[in-house]
Amino acid sequence: MTAPRPGLALAGTARALCEFLAFGVKEARSCLFAGLFFLAVFAVPRGGWLGIPRYDLLLAAALGIQAAMVWARLETLDELKAISLFHVVGFALEVFKTSGGIQSWSYPDFAYTKVLGVPLFSGFMYAAVGSYIIQAWRILDVRVRHHPPYWMAGLMAALVYANFFTHHFIGDFRWYLACGIAGLYARATVRFRPLDREREMPLLLAFVLIGLFVWIAENISTFFAVWRYPNQLGAWSAVHVGKWSSWSLLIVMTFTIVANLKHIKASIHVPAA
C-alpha cells in the first residue's frame, strides 16, 4: 500500500470524517456529466420549451455538457472516444428494446431527433455511466488487484450484452451469468484513494452498489416520464427491483470495457511526435 502523504496527521473520527468528505467530493466530481445531464432531465418541461420538443432539448444539453467538459479539460479526448463507444452500445440496445416486437419500454413523446423510434439523447444515459467509471478511475486513482484474465472478462461482458437481446427468445440467463461473474471476480478488489491513503473494497460489491444508484436514477427518470415501462403507462409505479440486477450486470460490462481499453492502451507504444 502506498505510504500516506505527509502533512495529514489525522486519526480516529477526524480521519474518518475527512476521508468521507473527500470521497464524497471526488464522487460528485466523477458524476459531473451524469449529474448535469439528469439535472437537465428534471429541468426541461415535458412539453418542451420555445416549441422545441423535450427530447431534442435533452440531446442539445448532453452535447453541450460533453463539449464543455472537453473544453475545460475535465475530460480528455481519449475519454470522450471511450464514452462515445458507450453511446453506440447503449443506443443499439435501446433500438432493440423499444422495437415493435419487443416493446420493453417506450419513449412516448415526439422529437425531431428520433431514429428508429429512439431519441438520440438516450445513448447519453449509458454514456453517463461510462463517464462516471472513467472519471472515478482517474480521480480516485483506482487500481484493481487480482483482476481476472482480460479475455475471460471480455467474454463474460459480451455474454452479458448478448443476454439483453437473446433473453427474449431463448430464456434469461442473467443469474447463471451472475454466478460466473461472482466466481471470476471473487478475489478481485478495487483500491482507491479518497484522501491520502489507499482504501480497498471487493470489486463485486462496487458493481452492486453502482447498479443500485443507477436503479434509483431510473426510478426518478421514469417518474418524470422520460421513458416508460408498459406497467407505467397508466400511472407511475416503482421500477421492479429486478432491474437492479440488470443494471449491476451492465456495470460489469461497462467496467470491463474501460479496463480492457486501459489495458490495450498501456500495452501499445505510441512514439512522441
Rank of each mutant, 00 (worst) to 15 (best):
Met1Tyr: 15
Met1Leu: 12
Arg5Trp: 13
Gly7Ala: 08
Ala9Gly: 12
Leu10Asn: 08
Gly12Gln: 09
Ala16Phe: 14
Phe20Gly: 14
Leu21Arg: 08
Ala22Gly: 07
Lys26Glu: 00
Lys26Gln: 09
Glu27Ile: 15
Ala28Trp: 14
Ala34Tyr: 11
Leu36Val: 10
Phe38Cys: 14
Ala40Cys: 14
Val44Asn: 01
Pro45His: 07
Pro53Tyr: 00
Pro53Val: 07
Tyr55Gly: 02
Leu59Trp: 03
Ala61Asn: 07
Gln66Ile: 00
Ala68Cys: 07
Met69Ala: 01
Met69Ser: 00
Arg73Gly: 03
Glu75Thr: 03
Lys81Asp: 08
Lys81Ile: 07
Lys81Arg: 14
Ala82Ser: 13
Ile83Leu: 09
His87Cys: 08
Val89Ile: 11
Phe91Gly: 00
Phe91Glu: 01
Phe96Ser: 01
Ser99Ala: 10
Ile102Val: 15
Ser106Glu: 09
Asp109Trp: 04
Val115Ala: 12
Gly117Phe: 02
Val118Ser: 00
Val118Asn: 00
Val118Met: 01
Leu120Cys: 04
Gly123Pro: 01
Phe124Cys: 02
Met125Val: 13
Ile133Val: 15
Ile134Leu: 15
Arg138Asp: 08
Asp141Val: 10
Val142Ala: 10
Val144Met: 13
Arg145His: 10
Arg145Ala: 12
His147Ile: 04
Gly154Met: 05
Met156Pro: 00
Ala157Ser: 11
Ala158Gly: 11
Val160Pro: 04
Tyr161Ile: 14
Ala162Arg: 12
His168Ile: 02
Phe173Met: 15
Leu177Trp: 07
Ala178Leu: 15
Ile181Glu: 03
Tyr185Ile: 04
Ala186Thr: 08
Thr189Cys: 09
Arg193His: 02
Pro194Tyr: 04
Arg197Gly: 02
Glu198His: 14
Leu204Glu: 05
Phe207Met: 11
Phe207Lys: 07
Ile210Thr: 14
Gly211Met: 06
Leu212Lys: 06
Phe213Asn: 09
Trp215Met: 04
Asn219His: 10
Asn219Lys: 04
Asn219Cys: 13
Phe224Asn: 07
Val226Tyr: 07
Gln232Lys: 10
Trp236His: 13
Gly242Ala: 12
Lys243Cys: 05
Ser245Trp: 13
Trp247Glu: 08
Met253Trp: 08
Thr254Glu: 01
Thr254Lys: 00
Ala259His: 12
Asn260Pro: 04
Leu261His: 11
Lys262Thr: 04
His263Leu: 11
Lys265Pro: 01
Ser267Val: 05
Ser267His: 11
Val270Asn: 06
Ala272Asp: 14
Ala272Lys: 12
Ala273Val: 11
